[in-house]
Design a protein around this nucleic acid. Structure first.
Lengths: 241, 241
DNA sequence: TCAAAAGTGTTTTACCTACACCCATGA
DNA sequence: TCATGGGTGTAGGTAAAACACTTTTGA
């Protein structure tokens, strides 16, 4: 019973933490970074990576970036705050207030599962469809974050943050399918994506594939910025009601 | 310069606060509760209501409810957490971390502007289109909350939280117009709303109006619960991409 | 020549949009 | 009888959905 150890300390003794849901896309699957605990409580369980925030004068956003860097070595990944959990009794010694972020990281030739796993102790990138049982209330945290991301990819181009700089339309579609958890029609998907005009045709093709090579695209940064600025509909109507 | 007084205390000396954006709908306008400051800094400026969280063992959600009750006397209003601000130097003595909530309150015959204004010192319900200059970073907080609410009313039935239990379709439309900041077509609006089948026809009419009385509706709680459960599209396509 | 994935159009359907008049009521 | 808001339907356009075959390439 995880509430058994709760102590009602004054809130000024409360400890801050960052919990970070780190998403990556690999082998056609949406994966998230989990840490295997080596201490009680929940020893042997997997949890989201979380760190206490103790630095002087560090804002929570800075702390989240520091945590992400510690986990992955990345300093420029997409990072967004989602929610602040206050009912978590993570440690017996004091109440912990967790600010939850999610990060989107690019897994490519340079950074991949094995790299991540070796970078942080007891870490693994686990497909979100094959999650083990999670410690603390991390299952519900992850559920909330997934819900948010699944909605957001429909109107905001955050999915691209998971792809390498150059990608094919099939890879992009496969990513959307992994995030949304359902198949989408290839022709309709391509029409829709191309209609937004945020992709730049690189006039390059895949190499080292044993089938017809696909064209490579990259995000058109300028167009992308306009989309972000106006937050116009990426795939849903905005004009209703 | 509001950063001038910043002190880099260890984060364990950080103070928690709740900032609460309280929305109400009155006279065809979306209004929000503001407090006029009587102390430096920002003396004479208006700000969002905010309170320190100091109670032992109180979660932030409970604290937000307590704050709302203190402000309005309401205990069951719709309340949702939006964002946690960490860069606010509200007080000189220590860093303040603000968890921002928004609340939707029902202004009707019982509770109205004057009631609210008399309930809390120096408080006023101000139309969001006629905001005074706000102290601290409250203008940007309010902007974020408004953006969130404007998006959310399109797919989630939160707007109803601002109406009295019985309402007319014109009142509902007027509310949507106030929130979205634009006019909508009466016939299209009615078709759309009725198609969701979350309204219950009360077979009652307005009284005390000097024109043709409109039918009264209320939210169908059962249908509403289904909408909330499945979060199906209230007005936008969900099926794209 | 085969396997594997790339790439491409059309038709149907559903929804959104624009638009204007008559009705009921109380003053 | 008039002023005020209540209430209603249709047609046209646009976007989504459904659907299958040909092309390219390397093995």
């Amino acid at each position: 019973m995880k509430n058994a150890l709760k102590t009602n300390l004054p809130i000024s003794n409360t400890v801050f933490a960052i919990d970070c849901v780190v998403f990556g896309f690999e082998e056609g699957e949406l994966k998230t970074l989990l840490i295997e605990r080596t201490e009680e409580p929940y020893r042997g369980c997997w949890t989201l990576p979380g760190y206490l925030v103790v630095d002087q004068g560090e804002s929570i956003d800075e702390a989240a970036n520091r945590v992400l860097c510690k986990l992955t070595g990345l300093t420029n990944a997409y990072l967004e705050q989602v929610y602040t959990y206050t009912n978590i009794d993570r440690y017996a010694e004091s109440r912990v207030i967790s600010v939850v972020y999610y990060a989107m990281i690019r897994l490519d030739g340079i950074l991949d599962s094995q790299h991540i796993a070796s970078y942080t102790r007891n870490a693994a990138l686990v497909p979100v469809n094959e999650l083990p049982e999670l410690g603390f209330d991390h299952a519900s945290i992850l559920e909330r974050v997934l819900k948010k991301v699944r909605r957001k990819v429909l109107y905001y181009p955050i999915a691209f943050e998971l792809l390498p700089e150059k990608f094919t339309l099939t890879q992009l579609q496969s990513l959307y399918e992994a995030i949304l958890g359902r198949k989408v029609d290839k022709r309709n998907f391509r029409k829709k994506i191309m209609s937004h005009q945020i992709l730049m045709d690189l006039n390059e093709k895949q190499k080292d594939v044993s089938y017809r090579a696909a064209k490579l695209f990259k995000l058109d940064k300028k167009k992308h910025a306009q989309v972000v600025e106006h937050e116009f509909s990426f795939s849903e109507y905005e004009t209703s009601i």
